Simulated assay, not measured.
Amino acid sequence: MGEYADLRGVRTWYETEGTGEPLVLLHGGLCTNDTWGAQRPDLAAAYRVFLPERRAHGHTPDVAGPLTYRDMAEDTVAFVETVVGGPAHLVGWSDGGVVALFVAVARPDLVRGVVVIGANFRPAAECFVDPGMLDAMTPEGPDLAFFRELYEAVSPDGADHWPVAAAKVLDMWRTQPTLTTDELARIQAPSLVMSGDDDLMTLEHTADLYRAVPGARLAVVPGASHLVPLEKAALVNGLIRDHLTQGEVETMLPVRRAHPRSG
């Protein structure tokens, strides 16, 4: 069961589970908390897991105006400050990963660790393997049928609002995010960048994200797509847990992580 919190004028639905250090799961675009089904039990065994649904997603109503990652990041900051009550680990998938990046850039004091899965920091035209895929997507088309069913089942705005919400998300994907590498360089939390080896984002873009975040770690999961948390749940969950508990990485032959020699 979940409940609502009024945050920045957005009546935000969230759920909680487990005990331990706080960990916030940030779902993907057009998704609900149901898509974390393969991660929730595992992570809740070790953490106090918080699952907010963002504006125009799931049980959380839409608000006037376009959707932006910056607005959703500010909503998430308010959630961490108000509901979580202090710094938390952020684990974001797809759009949730983008939101996690924005939060980590703007409010490093609220972020203990970061895991972003299938995330991008530039708009679709600059990072998608097939940017033209968005041209074929419409709110009533077959490509979004799965997401439409998720939305219609729980949205307080009603099924009739789906075309509005879906159009906002599609517009956002075409023009956002617009993070720079200088902004990403401000992230202080230990960060893991993860993707499937056949993700929506190019491997080159994923590598650029990895290189831009100081001290980041990289995991490209073989035989997986943008749905890697569902396809390789046990591996993904293990990578998340290892990252959040490992501390500083020590390897036998460090190159990027080699400390500068003195003298």
Score class of each variant (00 low, 15 high):
132 G>A: 04
188 Q>N: 01
14 Y>H: 10
162 W>E: 03
70 R>E: 11
126 E>F: 04
183 E>P: 02
93 W>A: 00
263 G>N: 07
120 N>E: 12
197 D>Y: 04
216 A>G: 02
88 A>N: 06
212 A>I: 07
189 A>W: 03
58 G>D: 06
98 V>R: 03
32 T>A: 10
244 L>K: 01
161 H>K: 12
40 R>F: 03
23 L>M: 14
120 N>G: 14
176 Q>G: 12
50 F>D: 00
218 L>W: 10
104 A>Q: 01
79 F>V: 02
233 A>D: 04
185 A>E: 03
225 S>E: 09
226 H>E: 07
89 H>M: 02
203 L>Y: 01
11 R>G: 03
126 E>V: 02
249 V>D: 04
263 G>H: 11
7 L>G: 06
31 C>Q: 13
173 W>V: 00
200 L>S: 08
134 L>Q: 01
112 R>E: 12
214 P>R: 02
224 A>Y: 07
166 A>H: 12
249 V>F: 10
185 A>G: 07
205 H>L: 04
216 A>Y: 03
250 E>S: 08
10 V>N: 07
8 R>Q: 15
144 L>Q: 05
190 P>S: 01
141 G>S: 07
86 G>I: 12
188 Q>E: 10
170 L>K: 03
46 A>Y: 14
66 P>R: 15
70 R>F: 07
188 Q>V: 10
133 M>T: 02
162 W>Q: 00
28 G>V: 11
68 T>L: 09
143 D>R: 09
54 R>V: 07
66 P>D: 14
253 L>Y: 03
99 V>T: 14
92 G>A: 13
68 T>H: 04
26 L>E: 06
16 T>V: 10
120 N>Q: 15
150 L>M: 15
15 E>F: 01
90 L>M: 13
255 V>I: 15
171 D>F: 11
25 L>S: 05
178 T>N: 12
241 R>I: 05
99 V>D: 12
71 D>C: 09
45 A>V: 13
168 K>L: 15
